[in-house]
Amino acid sequence: MSVMSEFSKGIIKENAVFRLMLGLCPILAVTTMAEFGLGMGIATTAVLICSNLVISLMRRIIPTKVRIPSFIIIIATFVTMVDMLLNAYLPALHAQLGIFVPLIVVNCIILGRAEAFASKAPVSHSLADGLGIGLGFTLSLTLLASVRELLAAGSIFKINLLGAAYEPFMVFGSPPGAFLALGLLMALVNMLSKKYKLE
């Protein structure tokens, strides 16, 4: 596998949300508005790239027996740093994402990539993998959040698209609506990728 294909696989073929279905809890919770989806995606991507890089660099040093604790310490460190930085420089986003920023620690995608990929692959591949999976994750979250914001508030990125007379489909702003929207989008993505052979 080339570096390029390690990068591109994360966008559709191994898309974290629609294919691997990893880390769904924060996805359902924060995707009420497009900007939160984008913010969560970028925060997760930042952690993913850093943890992939560090774990790949240290893959020969970390003893196999304690690799999971080591991964968790590394991931938790980056997450806490992102949490503090968001709180200091992007307080509005931090207030909205709330508990879900610290919870990136237990996001399956990050530990999953560390265990399944970064701990076995060279640095360049791990970086490409982190970037690709992260980008796919961010795109999926933004897409899901845009759909939900459009239905539940008539806008995307707070830009009103459906006019003032639109009566919001409020269920899509609530947790049950998150499940509905995710399920319907997943069906659509599967249908389209089968049709256009994006496997």
């Binding site: 009566e167 409020m170 049950p176």
Partner: peptide
Amino acid sequence: AILMASWASH
């Protein structure tokens, strides 16, 4: 249930 959750006033 979905209509109720979306347009409770109607």
